[in-house]
């Protein structure tokens, strides 16, 4: 349980970090280290050099930007959990953060770190995919970005290239007045890895018809998935119509099987949790006043 030797560098700017990353194939980025340090301790990862980006000013902070909230990569999960902007504008992220690890790991673990790690059962990637967030990257050649759905490829595999690092995540903010979120997950113990997690966000008009709807599923497939719920848009969502849409979307779901849960179990629980999350989101939206302030 002792990591192999490595060099440690803490660059002063993002440009310098990108330069270091691009010039060394054996270098890895470290920020909160809550996943990487165990990997190093068990020697599943043996980078020659760690580039510490945690204190880079360019990667810190949460800001509102025309129709979206941009969360800097090194924002601590605990900080995001308490942040008033996230609570008000990205309620789904605020809702799932208490499920990410434990309080001591959330105090060090970063939002960008969870994205870059790409665990199929992790909650932050699930929110990014469900809300169609944009993953903003930095590299020596300049900043780029890509949709979350293209970013996650498989278990712990992302589209990130050697030499790139996650800069921030841009979460879209829905413009509607009545928005509700719902979230459920099943794991063996509180805050352990989810076997199945479902997150939903629903916007309703004054008559209770669905204006916009997003539903995502984590822990089931090899990466978080956004399910197509467009058939429910413009309708009054009830249990029957929601179940039909979920069944249609989950019909050809490629579920994982492991020591903890079989593919059959995962598929079955996925349907149940999707429905619960969707109904919870709808009810939370319906509880908001139809007129007046959001």
């Amino acid at each position: 349980m002792k990591p192999a030797p490595f060099d440690y560098v803490r660059p002063d700017s993002l440009a310098e970090a990108c330069e270091l990353l691009a010039g060394d194939d054996d270098a890895r980025v470290i920020a909160g280290g809550q996943t990487l340090v165990p990997m190093l301790a068990m020697r599943l990862a043996r980078p020659a050099r760690l580039i510490d980006i945690l204190r880079l000013p360019e990667l810190a902070g949460i800001r509102e930007e025309k129709g979206s909230v941009v969360v800097g990569a090194t924002t601590r999960q605990a900080q995001a959990e308490r942040d008033p902007i996230i609570r008000a504008s990205v309620p789904m992220l605020a809702r799932v953060l208490p499920w990410v690890g434990h309080p001591p790991t959330r105090n060090r673990g970063t939002v960008g770190g969870s994205i870059a790690n790409g665990d199929p059962s992790a909650e932050i990637p699930l929110v990014a995919v469900t809300l169609s967030a944009e993953i903003m990257l930095a590299a020596r050649t300049g900043p780029t970005s890509m949709p979350a759905e293209e970013f996650f490829i498989g278990p712990m595999v992302t589209s990130i290239d050697q030499g790139q690092c996650v800069r921030a995540i841009r979460f879209p903010v829905w413009p509607h007045r009545r928005i509700g979120v719902g979230f459920f997950e099943v794991s063996s113990r509180r805050s352990d890895f989810a076997f199945v997690a479902a997150a939903a966000q629903v916007a309703l008009d004054e008559e209770g018809r669905c204006l916009d709807i997003a539903l995502g599923l984590g822990g089931v497939a090899d990466r978080p998935l956004r399910l197509d719920m467009s058939s429910l848009a413009g309708t009054v969502v009830d249990a029957a119509s929601a179940a039909d849409a979920i069944n249609a979307a989950c019909a050809d779901l490629d579920a994982m099987s492991d020591l903890h849960a079989s593919a059959t179990y995962r598929r079955r629980v996925a349907g149940v949790l999707c429905l619960r999350a969707l109904e919870q989101a709808r009810d939370n939206a319906a509880a908001k006043p139809a007129k007046g302030a959001r």
């Binding site: 470290i30 280290g33 809550q34 340090v37």
Partner: peptide
């Protein structure tokens, strides 16, 4: 191995001393 970093609990085995 929990210690407090600026008053908040953190696992000291998941942090390098150089950080």
């Amino acid at each position: 191995c929990t210690v407090l970093i600026d008053g908040e609990p953190v696992r000291s085995c998941l942090m390098f001393a150089v950080q």
